[in-house]
Simulated scan of single mutants.
Amino acid sequence: MAEVSNELIFEVLKQVQQRLDRVDHKVDEIKSELIALPGHQISMLQAFQNVYGILGRSDARLDHIERRLELTDAPTP
């Protein structure tokens, strides 16, 4: 059986420490991405609200045009 020396243990511990440093770095990256997600979600919700607002206005304009051209059966307000 091979003898375990302090140098061998030290080398293994250095490798473990390097791997842990890489893991810490990756965890920090993931945390940063997770922190950014709510901001992205808010931006997307605002964009959807803008789209719905534009569609609502377009729908109202289309109804107005149909009434003016008498293309609808809906009563005129």
Rank of each mutant, 00 (worst) to 15 (best):
M1K: 10
M1L: 07
A2H: 08
E3H: 11
E3Q: 12
E3N: 10
S5A: 03
S5T: 15
N6C: 08
N6E: 14
N6R: 11
N6F: 10
E7L: 06
E7F: 07
E7V: 05
L8V: 06
I9H: 00
I9W: 00
F10R: 08
E11R: 09
E11L: 11
V12L: 14
V12M: 13
L13W: 11
L13D: 06
K14L: 08
Q15Y: 07
Q15L: 09
Q15C: 04
V16C: 04
Q17I: 09
R19N: 09
L20H: 07
L20D: 13
D21L: 11
D21M: 11
R22C: 04
R22V: 11
R22G: 03
R22D: 08
D24P: 00
D24A: 09
H25L: 05
H25D: 05
K26F: 05
K26W: 01
V27F: 08
D28W: 01
D28H: 08
E29Q: 13
I30K: 10
I30D: 05
K31F: 05
E33W: 03
E33C: 04
L34T: 03
L34K: 14
L34I: 13
L34H: 09
I35M: 06
I35T: 05
I35A: 02
A36D: 13
A36C: 05
L37K: 07
G39Y: 13
G39T: 15
H40P: 02
H40I: 12
H40R: 14
H40Q: 15
Q41K: 13
I42S: 07
I42F: 06
I42W: 10
M44H: 07
Q46M: 03
A47E: 15
A47P: 01
F48V: 15
Q49W: 03
Q49K: 09
Q49R: 15
N50E: 11
N50R: 12
Y52N: 02
Y52S: 02
G53K: 12
G53T: 10
I54M: 12
I54K: 11
I54S: 09
L55N: 07
L55R: 13
L55A: 08
R57Y: 05
R57M: 09
R57G: 06
S58F: 14
D59A: 14
D59K: 14
A60G: 00
A60M: 10
A60E: 14
R61K: 13
R61I: 12
R61M: 12
L62Q: 04
D63G: 05
D63A: 14
D63N: 10
D63T: 12
D63W: 00
I65K: 02
E66L: 01
E66Y: 00
R67H: 12
R68S: 13
R68I: 05
E70D: 01
E70L: 02
E70M: 01
E70W: 05
L71H: 02
L71V: 01
T72F: 00
T72P: 00
D73E: 10
D73R: 07
P75D: 07
T76Y: 10
T76N: 04
T76M: 07
P77R: 02
P77K: 01
P77W: 02
